[in-house]
Simulated assay, not measured.
Amino acid sequence: MEIQFLGTGAGQPSKSRNTQAIALKLLDERNEIWLFDCGEATQHQILNTTIKPRKIKKIFITHLHGDHIFGLPGFLSSRSFQSSEEQTDLEMYGPVGLKNYVMTSLRLSGSKLGYRIIFHELENGGKIFEDDSFEVYAEPLDHTIFCLGYRVVEKNRVGELDAQGLKEAGLPFGPLFGQVKKGQVVEYKGKIFDPKDFIGQDKIGKIVTILGDTRKSNAAVRLAWGANLLVHEATYEAKESKMARNHGHSTSKQAADVAKEAGVNRLLLTHISARYVGPLVNQLASEAQEVHANAFVVRDFYEEKID
């Protein structure tokens, strides 16, 4: 599981930061990528990465401010233009109004897609997705308009099969190995092969929390509780806390407060105001690190493996 930032700026693009878009790469886990927000020119940013648009199977939108959705029509169209590749349906999650925005943009521009979009418009929080390997939860945050945060929970996976141990114990390689891997007790030539003797401990799933724009809130803490990784906006420095509150945003210190309260392992700060360049970015990082030592201000195209 890896995360890559396609845009890390706040409000509007700058020379150093594009608007918000985050790719959660689940290629090893499920051979797909989930996109969180899609600011203007996200499709251009993708061209500078190894991401293949057809691998993006789900898009989670935090809120309907332009710096988080203006890239959708272009990206969706470009994904459809890849006619040489398989056209796969795409699921989209976000606030009420998302479907109207997307479909109106496509209709007025005469754009036709070669795949379906399945919309899930959300009015409240709760579990919004579950399958055999992942759960996703959403909860409203504290912004100037309805805005969501998302918690991605990987389910625990069965431990590694000790294939060499099975072989040495006398079980021939083949379908019987698969039965043991599935937790079934196998009898072969009068000998019992119990899975608990040949399967290691379960692999603990990872938790990733990606928040939209928000003031410091209890909802953010709940979503981030015990997470391996928290992505939190840090639009302003600490001395601008009043401005942050007036505009529905957080300072880097407030983001670190959330991470500390939630017991988060790693904090990545994004949605940086254009006023912070060069040494001023280090100021944001320093203020966060005073509260949560494992905090970092990300830049466009920054990529990290989630441990």
Rank of each mutant, 00 (worst) to 15 (best):
A169D: 12
N31P: 01
L47K: 15
D28T: 02
K196V: 14
H247T: 15
R215N: 13
N31T: 08
P279K: 05
G110W: 11
D162Y: 05
T270K: 12
V180F: 00
E304A: 05
C38R: 00
D202C: 04
F119C: 01
H143K: 11
R275T: 09
N100A: 14
R266Y: 12
G125Y: 08
E135T: 03
E304K: 10
S111Q: 15
S109I: 06
G226M: 11
K181C: 07
D67N: 13
S273E: 09
E154L: 04
I3A: 10
Y115P: 15
D28N: 10
R215G: 05
R215T: 13
K253T: 15
G9I: 03
G39H: 03
G66C: 07
E32C: 09
G248S: 11
Q164C: 06
A274V: 10
K57D: 10
A10Y: 15
L230C: 02
K191I: 07
V297I: 05
V231I: 14
K112D: 14
T8D: 09
V153M: 04
I69E: 03
K58T: 06
T214P: 10
K253H: 05
T214D: 03
A41R: 14
Y115D: 13
V221C: 04
V298M: 06
S133W: 07
E261P: 03
K25M: 05
R266A: 07
I306N: 11
S111T: 15
V298F: 05
L280E: 15
D162Q: 02
I204V: 15
D37L: 09
E130Y: 01
M92A: 07
Q283E: 15
M92F: 10
K203P: 07
G165R: 00
E304P: 04
R30P: 12
A255Q: 01
L122P: 14
A255T: 06
M92Q: 02
L211F: 03
A227D: 07
L229H: 00
V258Y: 01
I128R: 01
L64G: 12
S217Y: 11
L268H: 03
Q184Y: 07
N228L: 02
V180W: 04
E29W: 00
K99W: 05
M243K: 15
K58H: 13
Q289T: 06
